[in-house]
Write a protein that binds this DNA or RNA. Sequence first.
DNA 1: TCTTTTTATTGTCTTTAAGACACTTAAAGA
DNA 2: TCTTTAAGTGTCTTAAAGACAATAAAAAGA
Lengths: 242, 242
Amino acid sequence: MIEYADEASFLAHYNRREFDAPLLTVDPVLFTYHQAQLKVLLVKRSAYPERGLWGLPGGFVDMANDQNLEDTAQRKLQEKTGVSPPYLEQLYSFGSTTRDKRGWSVTVAYTALIAYQECAAHIETVSDAQWLPLEHLDDLSLAFDHRQIIDFARERLRQKALYSIVPAYALPEKFTLPELQHLHEVLLGKVLQKKSFRRRIEEAELLIDTGEKRSEGNGRPAALYRMKEGSGGYNFVRNLEE
Amino acid sequence: MIEYADEASFLAHYNRREFDAPLLTVDPVLFTYHQAQLKVLLVKRSAYPERGLWGLPGGFVDMANDQNLEDTAQRKLQEKTGVSPPYLEQLYSFGSTTRDKRGWSVTVAYTALIAYQECAAHIETVSDAQWLPLEHLDDLSLAFDHRQIIDFARERLRQKALYSIVPAYALPEKFTLPELQHLHEVLLGKVLQKKSFRRRIEEAELLIDTGEKRSEGNGRPAALYRMKEGSGGYNFVRNLEE
DNA sequence: TCTTTTTATTGTCTTTAAGACACTTAAAGA
DNA sequence: TCTTTAAGTGTCTTAAAGACAATAAAAAGA
């Protein structure tokens, strides 16, 4: 699928063809956790439509190279971040006549998580992509229905924080339990009981104590954990609070 | 989008056009509960491809009339059953090069529930549609990846039976708690504790006692309940067993 | 070095939800 | 009336979560 610089060139092409099917895109919502904030990766759009607005790092299916929808999501993220996120899961599909001014369109949205450090360097070199804190998003005008999609992804991630440790994929390979707990607290919008939080994680046996410690400030150093492999993105711990 | 009688007529059209986007369909999985069995609505395909096989009652978006994806799902179900199901929720989108022999294709699947009586009459008049018990599906060859989609929907419905009374939408407007419990037992594949089941439903306050009774066999008659309105498809009861 | 401060980690009592299972109630039929 | 059948309730036990105090390990300052 072709990108158009402006409406005129889009219409020039559009009118020559039979567009009898909706436009189809894939839009990944990539989250990370950095400086005690939840952030989302957005791209400044350089082409028609919605040119100049921030939007999700998505795009059209490459029918020659993508084998399935997840391939497309993976490829778009690779283009913007230089790496493949350790967590990628389909979120929801949004389709209507109104969400894209070009007409009937459908986007298959994905939720993805990655450690900030994992791709910070690459993102700084790719000038059009940027991590934006979710709290600051209210002031921003986003392309298409991308705000709704981000809200949807955010809500789903909140749910996951209740009964899984999926959010841990937004942390570096090795992380401490206080870090993970704080991330969950940000997602849930409330403080959690230390004891309950740790009890559940311990009983679910999803983390491995690396034996290493790390002291953030002046207090007692926290133990560093890593995710047990094979859990593969679906790390259920039953209810984590609420 | 056009239907083709066979491969030749499909290719004739296909070759005259620029198909530079995946085919996009919507496929609802409509369940009901009848004679102590979970059943799914399937249609015998009369057109290319997969002609002669049973498949989901889906189809292409009608860009002139459908405002969004849910409209498409609703319309296809209306065509086959004559009514709108009280429960309709997007399930998942399946997209790959391989799922349809015509090439890259995407389907947005929906889960729907309806009472058997609600549409039994209409379905008997529409010769190509039929309720098939899920247990008998193993022997059947289904079109495309429709078996996978049904399995997916079935699994999601099982999850819902754990923490909601969404399955109640597969029952008539008025139903008894033993009926609902048995439906949940079928979905979960195990017997449930009567007391726990009823306790949760009572505490969630999602049902209204109509005051009427109905006696199935010879024992004590069961109270008839109806769903409290406004719950609108998301009737959480926390964990219902397991 | 000793004490204070800070943060991580654990112990344990209370509260809440779920499971098990016996008991009561209301009908049908002999 | 007595038995059978299925609906509906009481209540004890078990398991999970919440609250919160206590302990442990570090840094910083006296």
